[in-house]
Structure formats: C-alpha cells, structure tokens
C-alpha cells in the first residue's frame, strides 16, 4: 500500500507492506536517517519524532497507521546554517558523547519547550525520561535544555 505523509512540511509517500514501522519508512524509504533505531521496543527513545503534535516512538507506529499524519523529525527542527535553539544549546554545552541518543533527545526537548515555555528542572527530567543515554551524559543535556529555555 501507499502511505502518504507530511514530513517536515513536505508531502511524501512510501510504498509499504503495511506492518513496517514509521521509523523504517523514515530511514529506509525517505532517507531521513537522523531518526535512529535501537531497541525497537519503545524503551530507548532514540526514534522519537513528533507525530500530529505528540512525541512518540516511531518504531511503535505502524507505517500504515501513519497514513495522512504530520511528522516532524530532527531534520525538520533546524538546518546546519540555522540550528534550532535546542540544537544550538546541545553544541554549546557539549551535550553529546557518542551521539546516538541525541536526535531523540533533541526532538523530545524541542517539543517540551514548544508546549511548555518555562519547564522546571523536574519537568525537564520527566519529559526526557523516555530517552536513554548510555554514555551517561544527562548532566550536560539538562544544562543545554535549561540554556535553550532561556534562549527561546
């Protein structure tokens, strides 16, 4: 079947059997490899995208069920020349070690700051509780999001 999506503001379509995940469509069909796949069980958050206004694990969205949806991936937040404030802050704070969890963290953080302009530290931690970093880099991540909050 053909799945029609709006991805980062552009109309896109993909041919799928149906049961594949949105993550697979984004990476393998649409070439948007910023969104990462790791656990494929919804535990790690590295595949986080914004789907119709909510942050979800794209590995747990059936591609067929995303037909007609609006998707924002990490590629849609900013450009290399014009970074999103969260991306800017991650760079400035050095909030990256191996970098694999970073796109998911950036998407979750950007969505948090769009829906809650003044999140408290506890709310930031809660919003990131579904994004695992196994290099244990959360300290710099939290500082980056607080810096982005001030910049936005």
């Amino acid at each position: 079947m053909i799945v029609q999506l709006t991805v980062n503001g552009e109309d896109r379509h993909a041919e799928v059997a149906g049961w594949e995940s949105l993550l697979w469509v984004l990476r393998e069909q649409l070439g948007l490899t910023g969104t990462k796949g790791a656990c494929e069980q919804g535990e790690c958050g590295s595949c986080s995208v914004i789907l119709d206004g909510e942050v979800v694990c794209s590995c747990l969205v059936m591609a067929a069920d995303a037909d007609g949806a609006d998707v924002t991936t990490v590629e849609g937040l900013g450009t290399p020349e014009d970074l999103h404030p969260v991306q800017e802050a991650f760079v400035a704070e050095g909030a990256v070690q191996c970098g694999y969890c970073t796109p998911g963290l950036v998407v979750a953080a950007a969505h948090l700051l769009e829906t809650n302009r003044r999140p408290e530290p506890d709310q930031i931690r809660e919003a990131l509780s579904g994004n695992l970093c196994r290099c244990t880099g959360y300290g710099a991540v939290l500082r980056a999001i607080e810096a982005a909050r001030e910049a936005m």
């Binding site: 919804g42 909510e54 942050v55 694990c57 969205v61 979750a108 809660e126 919003a127 509780s129 579904g130």
Partner: peptide, 9 residues
Amino acid sequence: VGSPQIRAA
C-alpha cells in the same frame, strides 16, 4: 506507565 512517548500513544 512507560515514558511520555508511550503514554502519548
């Protein structure tokens, strides 16, 4: 339940 990503869905 789960995480914010899980609870949203």
